[in-house]
Design a protein around this nucleic acid. Structure first.
Lengths: 138, 138
DNA sequence: CAGCATCCGAATAGATACTG
DNA sequence: CAGTATCTATTCGGATGCTG
């Protein structure tokens, strides 16, 4: 079996229940510009359009709007209208969305331990003791 | 501390050793089109330009060449010239590159368990028992 | 076999202004 | 507050042909 799980080999035949590479699929869904920053902020507790807009440096409302719609479509977040006065719109991670945390954690761990020149100001590697095993939310 | 590890809060001051979001950094490095397919094939044992070219459907030599250089630059793969006759070029994952496996595994797990309509031909969800916990290499 | 050069269209995203 | 509309700039990647 391949790393992608794309091809399942049984005794004599090769079958696949898959129509796309699972790894690639996930990257297509969350790998676009701004998407993981939005998710990161939502894990950090931002749940309104303007909070997200403020906390994600450089994003404009058009891109934020587009990405929020994509994430909603995939069931990763949910848009809700809070009808109490003043009426608000609130975005929440769904159960599915919260399942992205291990992926984000692995992504964080990888760059912190393997790409020091890309993430650290001083560009110098840290020992594994200096790198948090679990990236806390908050 | 944020989920990104971007801000480290100590008693009274907020300091950051980071110049970029670690999650975003990893996605920038491996999130481009073709990159993870190349890595997947390398985890599956392809280590020559033309093997990769054959095994990654749709890629052209220009894109393969560009991506291999990027990955080399990040230290994720290594290009070697095998001087035995016939002379060959061979690409290998480095120790750093192999550290990407948990990330690829998480990516795979996510789509298999949370995006069935994107990965399965029949679009139907599987129970967690039906989803491999560890995506084997080979 | 392992690429590079060029050209070009498509997709992506930024800037700006406006709205119920 | 929570977006939409429009226009433009840039980036990306596909096609094709060539090379030591």
């Amino acid at each position: 079996m391949s790393v992608s799980g794309k091809i399942v080999k049984t005794e004599t035949k090769t079958i696949s229940e898959l129509k796309a590479c699972p790894i690639e699929t996930t990257f297509k869904v969350v790998g676009k510009k701004w998407t993981i920053l939005i998710l990161r902020e939502m894990f950090n507790g931002s749940n309104q359009f303007n909070r997200l807009s403020e906390n994600i440096e450089g994003i404009n409302s058009r891109m934020l709007s587009i990405r929020l719609k994509e994430l909603s479509r995939y069931g990763i977040i949910r848009r809700r209208i809070i009808s109490e006065e003043p009426i608000r719109i609130d975005y929440q991670l769904t159960d599915i969305g919260r399942k992205l945390l291990p992926l984000l954690t692995e992504a964080s761990k990888f760059s912190l331990s393997c790409l020091p020149s890309e993430v650290y100001r001083d560009g110098r590697p840290r020992t594994s003791k200096q790198i948090p095993k679990h990236i806390p939310v908050h």
